[in-house]
Computed example of a mutant assay.
Amino acid sequence: MKPTIRIEYCPKCGWMLRAAYMAQELLTTFTDDVYGITLQPSEISGRYTIYVDNELVFDRKREGRFPEIKELKQLVRNKVNPEKFLGHSDSK
């Protein structure tokens, strides 16, 4: 079964649009590689975490920042299809 990505975001912080943008970018890039993406409003203030099949791949609090979309695509690719070439997102 294809993996599911979950983006948990703080609705009180107004991060729903950021989560939706990142979900759209990931769905566009990984159309054939993922089952889907779930946006989950967090009950914990300030949370912005991204999981692939319940495995944490990015935590805003731990990193002290939001992920760049290029970085996020690489992190997700490494879990869902390590052989996939990401084009300009793989360029240095």
Results as ranks from 00 to 15, higher is better:
30 F>A: 02
30 F>K: 00
30 F>R: 00
30 F>H: 00
30 F>Q: 00
31 T>V: 04
31 T>L: 05
31 T>P: 01
31 T>E: 06
31 T>S: 09
31 T>N: 08
32 D>R: 06
32 D>P: 00
32 D>Y: 10
32 D>C: 08
33 D>I: 00
33 D>W: 05
33 D>E: 11
33 D>M: 00
34 V>K: 03
34 V>I: 11
34 V>E: 04
34 V>F: 01
34 V>Y: 01
34 V>L: 08
34 V>D: 01
34 V>H: 00
35 Y>K: 11
35 Y>N: 14
35 Y>M: 13
35 Y>G: 14
35 Y>S: 15
35 Y>A: 10
36 G>L: 10
36 G>H: 12
36 G>N: 15
36 G>W: 10
36 G>D: 11
36 G>K: 06
37 I>R: 13
37 I>F: 09
37 I>A: 10
37 I>L: 13
37 I>C: 07
37 I>G: 12
37 I>Y: 07
37 I>V: 14
38 T>V: 09
38 T>S: 12
39 L>S: 08
39 L>M: 12
39 L>D: 06
39 L>Q: 07
40 Q>G: 04
40 Q>P: 05
40 Q>C: 12
40 Q>M: 14
40 Q>A: 08
40 Q>K: 14
40 Q>Y: 10
41 P>Q: 01
41 P>V: 01
41 P>T: 00
42 S>T: 00
42 S>Y: 08
42 S>Q: 02
42 S>H: 04
42 S>P: 03
42 S>V: 02
43 E>M: 09
43 E>N: 07
43 E>V: 05
43 E>F: 12
43 E>Y: 03
44 I>E: 07
44 I>Y: 07
45 S>M: 10
45 S>W: 11
45 S>C: 07
45 S>V: 06
46 G>K: 14
46 G>S: 08
46 G>P: 09
47 R>T: 09
47 R>P: 00
47 R>W: 04
47 R>K: 10
47 R>Q: 07
48 Y>G: 02
48 Y>H: 07
48 Y>Q: 15
49 T>A: 01
49 T>C: 05
49 T>Y: 04
50 I>G: 00
50 I>F: 04
50 I>S: 00
50 I>K: 10
51 Y>M: 13
51 Y>W: 14
51 Y>S: 01
51 Y>Q: 03
51 Y>A: 02
52 V>M: 08
52 V>P: 07
52 V>G: 02
52 V>R: 01
52 V>E: 05
53 D>K: 06
53 D>S: 05
53 D>N: 14
54 N>F: 08
54 N>R: 12
54 N>M: 03
55 E>W: 07
55 E>T: 15
55 E>Y: 04
55 E>C: 07
55 E>L: 11
55 E>K: 10
56 L>P: 11
56 L>G: 05
56 L>V: 03
57 V>Y: 11
57 V>E: 09
57 V>F: 09
57 V>D: 05
57 V>I: 15
57 V>S: 10
57 V>W: 06
58 F>V: 03
58 F>P: 01
58 F>C: 11
59 D>F: 06
59 D>Q: 13
59 D>A: 13
59 D>K: 14
59 D>T: 05
60 R>D: 06
60 R>N: 01
60 R>I: 03
60 R>C: 13
61 K>P: 01
61 K>S: 03
61 K>C: 06
61 K>Q: 15
61 K>T: 12
